[in-house]
Design a protein around this nucleic acid. Structure first.
Length: 720
DNA sequence: AGCACGCCGACT
DNA sequence: GTCGGCGTGCTC
């Protein structure tokens, strides 16, 4: 006769900012982190046990439907990480858990049994196998006699059924334990003094420690990671490596597997099937994989013997999730390292201003690699003023001449233009009207090859308009240049030269980036035209000239981070040039040749312009010198967005934060939704959290909140 | 997010 | 006379 009942608190996997209570099952104790299936509304949902609590005796609770796990699905440190992340980014806990788990576990599927490492004949095989061995049994038996232990994948398909039967009958047994680790290959490279010093310091790191490894392009950061983690792998520990996009860094996986053995190292990314991802996830959780190289969500992979985390290209914006739970995998990785009390390395040639600031404040230990690992010099940057230049499809005569000379010398040219399609706009020659996407406040992009107008924000497509919608003139023309047009212009100018376009459109209908890259390496003189995709990771040894076509885009953007990204992109693209003992040259086309950022950038080093940008941020009171959160709202009707945001302004906890807005979003209309936002600034993250914790319940209670879709973006990265 | 309930327009 | 539009409210 308890005055109070115990109930179990469950994070149900729905996007609701609530925890639900259920009656505990009659037998068996539940542990936090176990998955359960619970009756919910009309049907049932998967949920996570958070703990026991007492609840008043008068409420009747539904019982837990089914306990799905014998053990917590995430270890306690990761449970804390999900908890922390949900609280910090003010995201519903159930949905945070759903995001942290592989799809199949989220859906309630069981954790897979560990796959056997191999098979062998059992000791008493002689007795059990006597009765009439069939042809297949005999074949299998001989296979196992010659190979002793056979890995599952090495068994011919036609013998699989026989194998299953043989295991059931007992004359073949599964080998579950790890194969002894293969010998770790010695480093094929000789480290220079800076690399060696970085490796030594990282190897001595014990306990939580954050390191910023800042190394110019070509300085051999990867070699430092690999050598720093080597002793951990030799002692059987595990390593987590986070990368921005795995498709762009397949060499890292290959290099890692080459050195440490393919069986120890696995990649985890969205191109894999749900089943494959779960298998790798489970193998990592069971300690059978030592190195996980993965994108964002890999920050939640359980690794029982985790010894170090590496975040490669830590400045890359794709570490911040843009939909659903807006978490930064880089920042959560740091929190994970803190919770697990291990060192973490953030590596980049162009560190984010946030990380630079942390290094300067002494929160991160700073490691620098100033020399390139090969003897190649850093490329020379030259500003090409466009004021007087004759432009051909966006290319200046100066750049064209440089291309010609480079090609004649048998070298390759890389032209960077961050705009897909043929032209970023179509306009009326008579009245100037620009063809807009009907669902977004953005111009439509002309794709000439498919003869379609496409919106890059919502995917809307249409034909070339018959007449101007405003004045009915038929004189419609394209304006501006995209990669498709650049490619066309270059084909006219250099008909004999192979030209490669590397962007999402070009790779869609041809083969993968990897094959394109392989082909490019085979070729001599060639031109590469491409977007962002070209800037990341790949080495093009024969490229000696890099042209940045539209430098100015990053100088005019309303996003306060645009100059930082411009700087990082230019330095990264420039780093593709002049490797392998050939001097490189970078030409920056601009209408603003005197712009201080470009002047500073042209001197070649990342640091001075980065520090200038940091000073600007300090003066403007922007991150990393203040904490920033965006309250975004969208609805079909504009007045509902404004009503909600104004009401949200009214209930802001006074004195803690400063509010600007409601401001229309950079793209006011997107996919048929009217969008606006509130900017919330606080002197630091602690104060921000205090304010958000007071504000959020008020927000959720607003009646106007029910007519809009709203989200909080803590530490926003892209102001889209 | 789903899912049901509920009150107003064009169809067999 | 119904089928169905999406506005509103709820989920232990």
């Amino acid at each position: 006769m308890n005055a109070e009942n115990t109930c179990i608190q469950i994070a149900v996997m729905v996007p609701l900012r609530r925890i639900f209570s259920y009656a505990p099952p009659p037998e068996g104790r539940l542990q936090p982190g176990m998955r359960v299936r619970v009756p919910f509304g009309k049907g049932s949902r998967v949920g996570i046990v958070l703990g026991y609590a007492s609840c008043p005796p008068d409420v009747t609770l539904k019982p837990i439907g089914q306990v799905l796990d014998a053990h917590p699905v995430l270890p306690s440190a990761l449970q804390q990480l999900v908890q922390f992340g949900a609280a910090y980014y003010h995201h519903p806990i159930g949905d945070a858990w759903a995001t942290a788990l592989p799809t199949l576990l989220r859906q309630g599927r069981p954790l897979p049994e560990p796959a056997p490492q191999g098979y062998r004949l059992s000791i008493d095989e002689a007795q059990t196998a006597q009765r009439q061995p069939g042809k297949l049994q005999q074949a299998l038996r001989e296979h196992l006699i010659t190979h002793r232990v056979v890995h599952t994948t090495a068994i011919p398909k036609e013998l699989r059924a026989t194998l299953r039967q043989a295991v059931r009958r007992g004359w073949i047994e599964a080998v579950m334990e790890d194969t002894p680790p293969t010998q770790v290959a010695p480093s094929p490279h000789c480290l220079n003094t800076e690399q060696a010093s970085a490796v030594t310091q990282l190897r001595m790191a014990r306990g939580f420690n954050a390191w910023l490894l800042e190394g110019v392009t070509g300085s051999g950061k990867t070699e430092v990671y690999l050598e720093a983690i080597r002793p951990h792998l030799e002692s059987g520990a595990q390593i987590l490596v986070l990368v921005p996009e795995i498709g762009l860094t397949p060499q890292l996986v290959e290099r890692c597997q080459m050195r440490f053995g393919a069986r120890r190292v696995a990649a985890l990314h969205s191109a894999q099937s749900d089943g494959e991802r779960l298998r790798i996830w489970a193998a990592a959780a069971a300690g059978r994989i030592q190195v996980i190289i993965g994108t964002r969500s890999a920050v939640f992979v359980p690794l029982p013997r985790l010894a170090m985390i590496v975040v490669d290209e830590e400045h890359d914006p794709s570490f911040k999730q843009q939909n659903g739970w807006h978490y930064s995998a880089r920042d959560l990785a740091i929190q994970r390292a803190r919770l697990e009390n291990i060192p973490i390395v953030l590596g980049s040639a162009t560190p984010s201003l946030e990380s630079l600031c942390n290094a300067q404040k002494g929160r991160y230990r700073h490691l620098q690699l100033r020399q390139r690992a090969t003897s190649a010099d850093l490329p020379v940057m030259t500003i090409v003023p466009l004021r007087r230049e004759n432009l051909q499809g966006g290319i200046s005569t100066t750049l064209l001449t440089a291309c010609k000379e480079t090609l004649e010398a048998g070298n390759q040219v890389l032209l960077f233009l961050n705009r897909r399609g043929y032209a970023p706009a179509v306009l009326c020659h008579d009245c100037g009207h620009v063809i807009q996407c009907p669902r977004c406040s953005a111009p439509m992009t002309w794709h000439r090859r498919q003869e379609r107008l496409r919106c890059h924000h919502c995917g809307h497509e249409s034909r070339w308009p018959q007449a101007c919608p405003a004045c009915h003139s038929t004189a419609l023309i394209t304006a501006g240049q995209g990669t498709e047009q650049l490619e066309e212009v270059l084909r006219q100018r250099f008909p004999q030269t192979p030209i490669w376009r590397i962007d999402r459109d070009a790779l869609h209908d041809r083969d993968s980036l990897a094959t394109a890259v392989a082909d490019i390496r085979q070729n001599r003189a060639a031109i590469l035209v491409g977007t962002q995709m070209l800037a990341k990771g790949h080495h093009f040894p024969a490229v000696t000239l890099v042209g940045i076509i539209n430098t100015d885009q990053g100088l005019f953007s309303a996003d306060f981070r645009a100059p930082e990204r411009l700087l990082q992109t230019v330095v990264q693209v420039a780093g593709r040039a002049g490797r392998e003992e050939r001097p490189g040259q970078v030409l920056l086309q601009t209408h603003l040749p005197e712009h201080p950022l470009l002047q500073s950038l042209a001197r070649g080093d990342y640091r001075p312009p980065a520090e200038a940008l940091l000073n600007e941020r300090r003066a403007a009171g922007l991150p990393p010198f203040a904490a920033l959160t965006l309250l975004r709202a969208e609805a079909h009707q504009r007045y509902r967005v404004d009503t909600f945001l104004s009401a949200a302004c009214q209930c802001v906890p006074p004195a803690l934060v400063e509010i600007s807005g409601p401001l229309p979003s950079l793209m006011e209309r997107r996919a048929g939704f009217e969008r606006a936002e509130l900017w919330v600034q606080a002197p630091n993250r602690t104060q921000m959290q205090k304010a958000l914790n007071l504000w959020l319940p008020q927000l959720a209670g607003l009646s106007s909140a029910r007519h809009v879709r709203w989200t909080l973006d803590v530490d926003p990265l892209l102001i889209t």
